[in-house]
Design a protein around this nucleic acid. Structure first.
Ligand SMILES: [Zn+2]
Ligand SMILES: [Zn+2]
Ligand SMILES: [Zn+2]
Ligand SMILES: [Zn+2]
Lengths: 168, 168
DNA sequence: TGGGGGGATGATACAATATAACTTTGGGGC
DNA sequence: GCCCCAAAGTTATATTGTATCATCCCCCCA
């Protein structure tokens, strides 16, 4: 379910997921940024890929691949699992979405185009998942790995619990 | 594949996964601890559950549920997916194993019976996965969540890369 | 002593997530 | 016109995880 335009104002980075906001603007921004980045990198944001990105961005809740497939099928009869997984793989490779490992689901990246490692706060009540970028936390991860003589390539940090609104 | 007894000595917590060691001792310790804990808690470590725990502990690499099923089937013909998932669920609930979300696989807990939140270092080369308990990192997670007014219930921290042996 | 209750397992079927492998399409360069 | 290559189409299958109902068995107790 898409939240509709309620306000022309944004609330600053990192808070959008938690309160009513102009979500169409989130989508528009994400799509515009994706187009620009793909242009810049000379990779193709094809109609299918863009549509999948749009579907993932319809909410701030992670979306399953087969949910994406259902949505995509409405306008694109030929869509099959590989159609979706290819698009998702592309979007992940370009840093436009993230996979939430503990949910087997996908979420639009709020920091596309900016080098970052992010962490996720997943509300078990409303499903809303906030992407945060916490350099201290990131440093703590690196430090822990270093102590164990481990070379980091990828970091998965997913914190599940209750968001501010649901804990109320 | 099980590594065999090569030395009667241990190398201290957190290092066992990284070098040749007396892995049978790892298994024996884990099973003994599990028995004691289940006794204490008045829950049943049934033959199936113990066998599954043993299978998971056969290496320091996360094991998939269907790998467990294959192994279990050798001695237990009636085993089916629910048999395995029930045992895994029990072992997770009792804190005897962990699920590695990014691999959909399961790993014996090296700190069973001790309250802890752990993190995992997953080597993409050899598969060896080390469980670490880093209080600083854990605090950083809590701090990050607090800053976002998020109530933490569960933390998933999985760092993938190269272990010391594979990078070295 | 023979129900009865409840936890554990058996058994069957199916759902949900993901990939393999081969074919077809379509746009750009030569 | 032809080739090349990335993208998408197509079919089939692999992998991971659940739902549901039946059965077994131990313990308690009337
Ligand atoms: Zn939004
Ligand atoms: Zn919530
Ligand atoms: Zn060991
Ligand atoms: Zn390694």
């Amino acid at each position: 379910m898409v939240e509709h335009r309620t306000s022309p104002h944004h609330s600053g980075p990192g808070r959008a997921a938690e309160k009513p906001h102009d979500h169409d603007a989130c989508i528009d921004t994400a799509i515009a940024r994706a187009r620009a980045l793909c242009e810049e990198r000379s990779v193709q944001l094809t109609p299918i890929r863009e549509k999948v990105l749009q579907i993932v961005w319809r909410s701030h809740k992670p979306v399953g691949a087969y949910q994406v497939l259902d949505e995509l099928s409405r306008t694109h009869k030929a869509a099959r699992p590989p159609t979706v997984y290819r698009a998702l793989d592309f979007l992940i490779a370009e840093g436009l979405i993230h996979k939430i490992e503990s949910l087997n689901a996908y979420l639009g990246c709020g920091e596309a185009g900016v080098a970052h490692t992010s962490q996720f706060l997943i509300c078990r009540s409303c499903g809303t998942t906030e992407e945060i970028v916490d350099p201290k936390l990131d440093q703590a991860l690196d430090a822990a790995a270093k102590r164990a003589r481990f070379t980091v390539e990828r970091k998965v940090v997913e914190i599940a619990g209750l968001c501010g609104r649901c804990a109320g």
